[in-house]
Write a protein that binds this DNA or RNA. Structure first.
Length: 235
DNA sequence: GCGACAG
DNA sequence: ATCTTGTCGC
């Protein structure tokens, strides 16, 4: 795996990297079993260059946490819409490398191919790590969609440049939908299928929601840096 | 030029 | 993303 040092990149160089990595994205129906699904997210204090990254592993389809990895890192690349990966992927990759075991599918907080250059953070991470990923975002970055029916489970296509790049998925009755899209080694139908099975009682699908809680607890000092296999805790 | 703009 | 109180609706 290449060293991920994006801190000194200019946006023009980052665009070039996205255009090159794009050639490696594989969008296709899921063709592997899922026993472990994971959620990845970042947390940080406003105006700080320290980011708290984490990945949480969940047994699938039970959605009970079985392990996690969290790490703190300094990041200089700024948040620029369309270039989120250059700010968050390096830290997420460190957390990923330290996991007690790798998941069958990773749900990244942000978009996959529902991106101006088809290289949202989920696609970027999937290609660099060589692992199946999907993106789950709370807001649209690009593309058009019609409001899905207000009942949980409803979804409508997210279209960008005449192409279906993802879906608006209603995860809770009468609550704003989330936007899901394939990252790597997945396609739109497979993404909708799996994320639909990750819906609990909240707006955010369990992998994303638990990853968000994890990195927030880490940032607030409620848990310490490192990794844990929750299946073998001392008793 | 104008509006939009993941986290 | 983070901060932050009350308020509306199922």
């Amino acid at each position: 795996m290449p060293l991920l040092d994006y801190d000194n990149l200019k946006v023009t160089a980052a665009t070039e990297i996205q255009n090159n990595l794009r050639e490696n994205i594989i969008v296709k129906p899921r063709e592997f079993p899922i026993n472990i699904i994971a959620g990845a997210d970042i947390s940080f204090n406003k105006f700080s260059t320290t980011v708290y990254a984490g990945v949480i592993l969940l047994q699938f389809p039970e959605l009970v946490p079985v392990g996690y990895s969290v790490i703190k890192k300094e990041v200089l690349f700024p948040y620029v819409p369309g270039y989120l990966a250059f700010r968050e992927v390096p830290a997420l990759m460190e957390a990923w490398d330290n996991l007690p075991q790798k998941p069958d599918l990773l749900v990244v907080d942000g978009h996959g191919i529902a991106h101006p250059r088809r290289m949202g953070i989920a696609a970027h991470f999937g290609v660099v790590a060589g692992t199946p990923t999907v993106g789950c975002a709370k807001k649209v970055l690009c593309g058009q969609f019609e409001e899905p029916a207000s009942i949980k489970g409803s979804h409508s296509p997210l279209i960008f440049k005449n192409e279906v790049v993802g879906a608006a998925l209603r995860t809770k009755n009468a609550v704003k939908p989330v936007f899901v899209s394939p990252g790597h080694l997945m396609d739109v139908p497979s993404t909708i299928d799996i994320i639909s099975q990750c819906i609990g009682r909240y707006r955010l699908p369990e992998p994303t929601r638990m990853a968000h809680n994890l990195v927030n607890q880490f940032r607030l000092g409620e848990i310490s840096e490192g990794y844990t296999d929750l299946r073998q805790l001392p008793m």
